[in-house]
Design a binder for these strands. Structure first.
Lengths: 230, 230
DNA sequence: CCAATGCTTCGATCGTCATCGAAGCTTTCT
DNA sequence: AGAAAGCTTCGATGACGATCGAAGCATTGG
């Protein structure tokens, strides 16, 4: 007879993530785009039937949502907080030494710049966040993270429509803990918009089929100039 | 044949938390003190043998560490980041609706003030954090959270030896996401020291056998005066 | 030295769940 | 309408792991 426990039930969520196939699917969905059941099956290395079963459980558990489009069913994470939790788990796993067998060829690229749901993470993500705060374009006060007046000007000049972002229900600025850098990077609507803008400007493109964000040579230069380290 | 994955292995960590008995033990350890195998067995509602097996796995996974003291073996979390991850999972579980069967009698008390590893969480924890930042005693810049000059003075007058805290390897100020309030509260060495000081001052005492922090009537009054909402 | 306490290890049992083949359902394309 | 694509459901199999009784090992106390 278990003692009467109170509070949220962690173990349900954790057991969903605890299966390797599901963990792979969730990691793939951290790329931010909605993926079909077939793509997720390939990503997890299981057959379509098995993947379907897993996805049904993830959906029942509230971790993923589905959108029907024709004969496809596209799955996505139900929110950025799911991605944030996964990143924090990765940080822990890295600290206690549960690194995957082989570093893998894409590993350095992932550490340099990757997608975290819809914003930039890795070395580049942390540098972006540091640059913005060091130049007082971003400030955190009262437990909230906000753009300063100078920050709003800067972002507008960078080509982002702040009014449009403010219209969404989503918080403008959030922090997200980076597993590879163990520092914070910028999430929230602004984090997503900044990455989107960089892609539009041709600085970087998203590597299809992975979370890698590949900066071009000139794009990297412009990034360094626009978001200087000091 | 699973595709070659890279990065930290989430599923190992998650599967450890995924078992209800282990999740209960970890939640109990969020209280911050080291607990014996017997206490943890009672907490989880399993026999001693089962608990022993679980604890061996948690130890192998790097989530808990053990200290031998005579014929007792005391277990504790291997770091504050474990507690932070558990809190974030609770936040998620609460959002997607995995709340435990009965709210339970201790639930309101837990939401008001509880231990999160070694610092104050819940409504009181969030109010403490808000008050410090609103009065510009705490400021976050450059991705780090730091005491201002005024903050250092305030903390010293509150009876905390900052030099001693700085001597530890542990970060002075950290934020931790609160599952019940969905806001940040103060963690890190300072967060721990503030709670310890309040207990020393007799403002509050830790409810044995739970994570509840019970403020006395006068202690609550002094808390409200020392950390005003605005 | 013997008994009691605290915990671990062994062994056996039982459930649960991941997995995939096969069949069924729905949508799209021709 | 027929065929193909995308996915789910059904059913069977197999494996892992949670659980506890019983025995074993260490430490403490008389």
């Amino acid at each position: 007879m278990a003692a009467m426990k109170t509070g949220p039930d962690i173990s349900l969520i954790a057991s969903l993530v605890g299966d390797p196939a599901r963990a792979n699917m969730l990691t793939a969905l951290m790329g931010g785009r909605a993926l079909s059941a077939g793509e997720l099956a390939a990503e997890a290395g299981v057959t379509l039937q098995t993947a379907s079963s897993h996805l049904a459980k993830l959906q029942a558990g509230g971790l993923v949502a589905v959108e029907k489009q024709g004969r496809h069913r596209y799955f996505r994470l139900t929110g950025p907080d799911i991605a944030a939790m996964l990143e924090s788990m990765m940080g822990l796993a890295a600290r206690v030494g549960h690194i995957r067998r082989q570093p893998g060829p894409k590993d350095p690229a992932l550490r340099h710049a990757r997608i975290c749901y819809d914003h930039l993470a890795g070395d580049q993500g942390v540098r972006l966040f540091d640059s913005l705060t060091r130049r007082r374009l971003l400030r955190s006060s009262d437990g909230r993270l906000d753009l300063t007046a100078a920050g709003e000007k800067f972002v507008a000049e960078f080509g982002i429509d702040l009014a449009a972002l403010a219209a969404t229900r989503r918080p403008l600025c959030r922090t997200c803990l980076d597993w590879s850098e163990r520092r914070s990077h910028l999430a929230g609507a602004l984090g997503a918009a900044l990455l989107a803008r960089m892609v539009t400007l041709g600085w970087a493109r998203r590597d299809a089929g992975s979370r890698v964000v590949a900066f071009s040579r000139s794009g990297q230069n412009r990034f360094d100039r626009t978001f200087p380290a000091r």
